[in-house]
Simulated scan of single mutants.
Amino acid sequence: MQRRITIKDVAEAAGVSTTTVSLVLNKVPGRRIPEHTRHRVREAAEQLGYAANAAARTLRTQRSQSIGFVSDEIATSPFAGQLIQGAQDVARARDNIVLLTNSGYDRELERREIRALLDRRVDGILYAAMYHRVVELPPELAGVPVVVLNAECPDEDVSWVAPDEFAGGWDAAEVLLAAGHRRLAMVNDADEIPASAERPAGFLARCAEAGLPASAVPVVRSEPRAVAARPVARELLDRPDRPTAVFGFNDQVALGVYLAAADLGLRVPEDLSVIGFDNVELLAESVAPGLTTIALPHHEMGAWAAEQLYTLVDAPDGQAPPRRTAHLRGPVVHRASVTSPLR
């Protein structure tokens, strides 16, 4: 069996002490080691195939070089995978790893998964939600460095990051108004969640700034699925003063608007402009014409949450940084479903 390469082997190959090798490979801050020496150590380690002993490093630093990512269904969904990617990019820059769990909304399973992560001595935990909502942390996370991701938390000691739903609604109206539309409407979600309150609030606020009072901008509700939104949108569009542009609460709802328009012989975008929300690429790029939509800032939120988690992990004992919260704005993804009105 091949002998394991040790830190002593790297030190001999690089012509430095084992202490210097340890400082370089563990990226210990505040040590004045010349860059050419650091390069020589890293090169020797790579040539020898040296792999640090993670267990020994954990005992020495009291860090596992890992963080946990606790989610409801994100790990099995391609839609929100960039939440994980953003966190992984930050962790990877520190030579750390992210350990993922997925509870499927099973609270008991979630508790067992959290305990398993803590047994593995993760340095902190990202507690992530598939969709923007208010969450209560499970008791197992008391006293653990934790940041809530894609959700809000009422705990005054817990940092969180979520999408800026108001800005998203504002931007949707801005796209339609900039194209010249004055008869606008929205098909909103029937569920009582932050997004179903804030997206129409932003949409109506931008309309009001353009001189369109809320009374002139119909907002109707539907389950956030195409099959449910279709009849709701059909009724909205089958009016003498039908809107020339519709904002769908999400891309599924926007698809329902497409289907309703087709039922009534209306063409998108010639007769009706449509804008969605979420930027589910498989849907938005597959419909004809391609759907203009507001993207959720998944990667940015994942990175923000991980950076904030590391500020908690790195803080000296008894000196935890203050709570931070953020609403991040997503970009408009322009495709072909919006154009100037014909009438």
Results as ranks from 00 to 15, higher is better:
L100A: 05
T244G: 15
V333G: 05
A52T: 11
I74Y: 03
L237Q: 00
V338W: 02
P322F: 09
P163M: 12
A254G: 11
T76R: 05
P321S: 04
A178P: 03
V219W: 07
L149V: 15
A179I: 08
V287K: 01
R92S: 15
P321K: 03
P154D: 08
V246S: 11
V268S: 08
A54T: 15
A260P: 13
H36W: 06
D95G: 14
G81W: 01
A320Q: 14
R199T: 14
A55E: 13
M1R: 14
Q2A: 14
A305N: 07
A128D: 06
V70L: 00
I74R: 03
L282C: 07
G68E: 04
R94H: 14
S340N: 03
G81F: 11
Q2R: 14
A173P: 02
P269H: 09
R111V: 02
R206N: 08
F249L: 01
A178Q: 11
D9F: 13
D9W: 00
A284E: 04
L328V: 01
A87L: 01
P321H: 05
R343N: 10
A245N: 09
D191W: 11
A303R: 00
G15W: 08
L99P: 03
S71A: 15
L184R: 14
E73I: 13
P218K: 04
L266N: 01
A208M: 10
D314C: 11
L118P: 03
G30E: 15
S286N: 11
L184Y: 07
Q319W: 00
R183Y: 00
P243Q: 01
V280S: 06
T101K: 05
R221K: 13
H181Y: 10
N102D: 15
R60C: 06
I125Q: 08
S103L: 01
C207T: 03
S22R: 00
V338Y: 02
L212Q: 03
E198M: 15
H334I: 06
W160S: 14
D95R: 14
L126F: 05
A210T: 12
S337F: 02
E46C: 02
L312H: 07
A197N: 04
M301T: 09
V220Q: 02
V257T: 14
V161R: 09
S159Q: 00
T76V: 12
P322H: 03
P231E: 06
R234E: 15
I84R: 01
A288Q: 11
T76M: 10
R60D: 09
I275D: 09
E35S: 03
A151P: 07
Q85A: 15
T101D: 09
G290W: 10
L118I: 06
A245Y: 06
P78N: 11
P154T: 08
R323S: 11
V220F: 07
T339F: 07
